[in-house]
Deep mutational scan, measured.
Amino acid sequence: MDPFVVLVLCLSCLLLLSIWRQSSGRGKLPPGPTPLPVIGNILQIDIKDVSKSLTNLSKIYGPVFTLYFGLERMVVLHGYEVVKEALIDLGEEFSGRGHFPLAERANRGFGIVFSNGKRWKEIRRFSLMTLRNFGMGKRSIEDRVQEEARCLVEELRKTKASPCDPTFILGCAPCNVICSIIFQKRFDYKDQQFLNLMEKLNENIRIVSTPWIQICNNFPTIIDYFPGTHNKLLKNLAFMESDILEKVKEHQESMDINNPRDFIDCFLIKMEKEKQNQQSEFTIENLVITAADLLGAGTETTSTTLRYALLLLLKHPEVTAKVQEEIERVIGRNRSPCMQDRGHMPYTDAVVHEVQRYIDLIPTSLPHAVTCDVKFRNYLIPKGTTILTSLTSVLHDNKEFPNPEMFDPRHFLDEGGNFKKSNYFMPFSAGKRICVGEGLARMELFLFLTFILQNFNLKSLIDPKDLDTTPVVNGFASVPPFYQLCFIPV
């Protein structure tokens, strides 16, 4: 058959498939802009700032609406009420993970971030239990974070109060905490193996944040037939998995079943207990991918939040002064901060919360999916439909947070200066898919920041009023603009 005829037939089939998918069930789905064949609503979305586009569309179609990214149908949730109703009140029905062709290629359905069903539930339950087990290797997770915080302070001392970009050092600290939990080992910041790991993690975040990856996920045929950065992403992930597998083999040879040292040991012990169960989800494949998931999810998000926190503290020296006064009063100079201190430091706690609220790190979270046909607000959402959640619409709700575009710790303080919780605080998402490392991340943010401010004054290279804190939105995360500062020993 003539190649031209084959091409026309293929394009015609794709067009018909697109029209059929977009028209099927439209009477039951939430409203939304009319999609174009094949490309859907992509032309109506700013790929570099999806969150802003969703906010604009919500003003037209309401808090629940339908979009098509290519052939992929998505239902968008915008605003606290619908997000709570879906992710919390109907948590089980909305607990699936959205379709990610690239991740599915890399992870093969294993791990904790992109798995679904029984596998996801069992691996998540085990990971939560293990991360909360403060007795691994007779050292609590808090001990590990405190140790890394001391190392971080010593690295900052080496800058000798000269101007520096904190990106690298602030990236090393949370990565080392995860390494300590998974591998029972922290690395020197100049260790070549550690630097290679950091390089792969950072490069992957840069790649994932590009519009090209959005295109690959919406048109998965590209993955096999086109060159691009997605190939580098898959190569980096394969490198990390190979490295983790080597460490798993080392653990198998040296493990003491009665004295687990780290996450890998705990997983291997669980595998041993379930070795007679042919349906067990505790396999080497799941261990390797879960460890890679924890490394990827637990490094860049925390380091970016820390980097943004220091920029905001530079911009608002009056806030920094209040935090340091609270540190001096509650902790002093002669001991290290600990998590028990947080309950006695409402202002510092409010500042950490406000940093996370203000920066809105992951504006749309990772997409969910419905696990069955769901009736939601008089609409029928078919099983498997991807759910896109606007966390921006919750964290920047102007009824809950007056002047949401302003950095103001009073958003989390009552009139008496006591810490005030808010149900709208969802930087880790909400419901059954809430970030498994939430507790660890909150511990790291509090301890790293208090250790830094206990030991250093922060000095800006320019007038604080002239510092730009506008986030650089890159399609996946909101990151701070480049800046330098000086760490002046107190």
Score class of each variant (00 low, 15 high):
249 K>E: 08
439 G>T: 14
93 E>A: 13
25 G>A: 15
114 F>H: 13
306 L>R: 00
319 V>N: 04
162 S>A: 14
246 E>W: 15
133 N>W: 10
378 N>G: 14
164 C>Q: 11
46 D>P: 06
307 R>V: 11
138 K>I: 09
139 R>C: 13
13 C>M: 15
490 V>G: 07
328 E>P: 01
296 G>K: 14
91 G>F: 09
45 I>A: 04
429 S>M: 03
163 P>W: 09
357 R>E: 00
85 E>H: 10
457 N>R: 10
231 N>S: 10
256 D>A: 07
314 L>H: 03
449 L>I: 12
428 F>V: 02
107 N>D: 05
434 I>Q: 13
350 A>G: 04
408 D>R: 04
188 D>P: 09
265 D>R: 01
87 L>H: 03
397 D>A: 05
288 V>D: 02
404 P>K: 00
269 I>V: 09
101 P>I: 07
87 L>W: 03
286 N>S: 10
297 A>S: 12
111 G>F: 01
174 P>H: 08
469 T>K: 07
239 F>D: 15
252 Q>P: 02
366 L>A: 04
408 D>N: 11
431 G>S: 02
435 C>W: 00
180 S>H: 08
306 L>M: 10
303 S>N: 09
62 G>K: 00
368 H>F: 04
271 M>A: 11
385 T>E: 04
444 E>A: 03
401 F>T: 01
309 A>N: 01
268 L>P: 00
453 L>S: 04
367 P>V: 05
233 L>W: 15
291 A>S: 11
226 F>A: 11
301 T>V: 14
311 L>N: 04
143 D>I: 08
349 D>P: 00
223 I>D: 04
380 L>R: 13
388 L>A: 04
286 N>M: 06
486 C>T: 14
446 F>M: 03
478 S>E: 07
293 D>P: 00
313 L>N: 00
441 A>L: 02
107 N>F: 10
393 S>D: 03
179 C>D: 00
53 S>Y: 03
401 F>H: 01
215 I>D: 03
287 L>A: 07
151 C>D: 07
311 L>P: 01
207 I>F: 09
164 C>T: 14
337 P>R: 01
101 P>Q: 08
309 A>C: 10
91 G>E: 12
80 Y>R: 06
